[in-house]
Design a protein around this nucleic acid. Structure first.
Lengths: 337, 337
DNA sequence: ATGAAAGCGCTAACAC
DNA sequence: GTGTTAGCGCTTTCAT
């Protein structure tokens, strides 16, 4: 059951490796190889269960038909859904996907990139971390095509797939205001990530548009490490005045809602909530919640499409694609629809 | 910025490729190469930013330092968490992970396996699909080490990582019975997957242990394609008699709970529920729910450990590792703990 | 202590 | 129409 190589087939047939290679790569016709030979070769190849050695092929052609995908955390539903979408598209285009989670750590991201470049990936889809410059430059230096998703990196010219963070946030917060909210608290991550900042800016803009002031004590940027504690602390500090909340992502939202539910009072039933990113859990809530849903499948799909265009070098200039989110209030009625 | 090869370094230094290779692979000492040369080589390699071409290396050595991971669906939280765990372990051991989702489709699984074998992975971790025999045999034929997770395949001798499906289910159902449930409905997937069957068997055993009968109308095996509709139909058909439910996984449970919540009555508040597999959404429920949690991180970790042992061929016989689940009732009290 | 040379399996430019 | 040849970049055996 040892591996069959081109040569084995060639020898068996008394022809050259070239011929076999040509036939098996579908280049027989354009090289005017006789049908008779074609059939013979194909038959033997099949019989012997020939499988080309991709390393040799890749070594020769420089193409691995593998792409890399680096996200913050594959176990997070947002990213795992995107991964799934990328995978599906890649599968259809005959690419395989290597993946890695950066944990928002620039060091780790850089290591992952190095390893993947080592593996001679043909291209890379990456969600940049804070201080992602260095790692992106690393990729660029290697001349490997890449596409950024979720967050752009300022100063980096490249393909990018994102959403309308600012407008979507503004819309969600405006909706809360229209529902009568006067004091909307906001929790975000303290990171130099432009998408997260835009969500904050949307929160600010909604207030400005309505001619409302925002008290500094009403919003907070928390750290990644102590997320849970900081959310709790902040909620305790604003629960007296706040009559609504806008959370910058589903992770924060989950922490907050859990905390609301733990509190003995039923106060949370009356609190208005809106947040960025959908989550299955929100659909099982008895309270209303406004949710900004990102078109995550579309994002993965577009990212891969763009990447393939760059890999196959159809001379497309780097595009920035902004997809639109959907805002929807989940409640008992939508549940029953 | 073109790629530097061994030869570039060798030429620059006026030495042979062999020497450079030896030094850079840490085999200098055992070949008694002079310290002076070692330093020189290392210095130049660093200066030029030498990165070995993994294809050439792999072509020569037959090792890719890449493993494959095939799960049913990477976007499912159970699998994405396992993937994360596998990834972390692999990362620490200098392996990269290729992944793919089989969608429980044997055809697709087989294609994925073929592609991965093509990529000359050093080993494979796989959650077998129904009728997984063929694909597993495919791997075996290629002499690539593999480890099965989640579900064993009868007749296949190999490393396997799973959990105590039968006992855990029995325990959960027994708990429902002790809480006073007389008519426990059960929904499972209609598939020849031994782990799912064991969950059904646990349900049966719990009844038998207590000397209770199970009416055939109380349980149902649903199909993958029409899962939602079939769950709804079944619930409609048993809601009169059932006073408790045991669901075979979190997917079914989510569908069911949503359906309960849609129904106008508040009946579901009084229904006792237990299920296999945890899910974040369950933690935000106001009703009680008994949850069997699989040690998913541990599963991924053990799977990779076992696989590496097989790859590195420390002659270990194929082990079957059964990890234990945890049963816990989630409710307002645990929430407040 | 160091190097020459073979070859992993494949592709592609160039014969014939 | 088909074959020859020359590598891709690396490791490894065997000389020296």
């Amino acid at each position: 059951m040892k591996k069959v190589s081109l040569r084995d087939i060639a020898e068996e047939l008394g022809v050259s490796k070239t011929l076999v290679s040509l036939v098996l790569n579908g280049k027989a016709k354009e090289n005017r190889i006789s049908q008779e030979v074609i059939d013979k070769v194909k038959k033997v190849a099949k019989e012997k269960g020939y499988e080309p050695n991709q390393f040799a092929k890749a070594l020769r052609t420089g193409k691995s038909n593998t792409i890399g995908l680096i996200v913050a955390d594959i176990s997070n539903s947002f990213y795992s859904k995107m991964a799934r979408s990328v995978e599906d598209e890649a599968y259809n285009s005959n690419y395989t996907v290597l993946f890695g989670s950066s944990d928002e750590d620039p060091e780790k991201a850089e290591k992952l990139i190095k390893v993947m470049l080592d593996r001679q990936i043909d291209g890379l889809i990456i969600c940049p971390t804070v201080n992602g410059h260095r790692s992106i430059e690393l990729i660029a230096k290697h001349k490997v095509p890449y596409v950024l998703v979720d967050r752009p990196v300022t100063g980096i010219e490249s393909g990018f797939i994102g959403v309308n963070n600012l407008d979507a946030s503004c819309e969600a917060v405006s909706a809360l205001i229209r529902q009568g909210a006067k004091k909307i608290a906001h929790i975000n991550f303290y990171q130099e990530l432009s998408n997260m900042n835009d969500r904050f800016n949307g929160y600010v803009k909604a207030h400005r548009d309505m001619g409302m002031e925002i008290d500094n004590s009403l919003f907070r940027f928390i750290s990644n490490d102590r997320a849970i504690d900081e959310v709790h602390e902040f909620i305790d500090s604003v629960s007296n005045q706040a009559d609504a909340y806008f959370f910058a992502n589903n992770e924060i939202t989950l922490i907050a809602i859990k905390y609301f539910m733990q509190s003995d009072t039923d106060q949370h039933a009356n609190i208005k909530i809106a947040c960025f990113d959908d989550h299955e859990a929100f659909h099982l809530l008895s309270t209303n919640i406004g949710v900004i849903t990102q078109p995550v499948v579309e994002m993965g799909k577009k990212a891969l499409e763009l990447l393939l265009e760059k890999i196959e070098g159809n001379g497309v200039s780097d595009q920035n694609i902004t997809l639109v989110t959907e805002y929807r209030v989940l409640n008992q009625d939508t549940l029953k629809k």
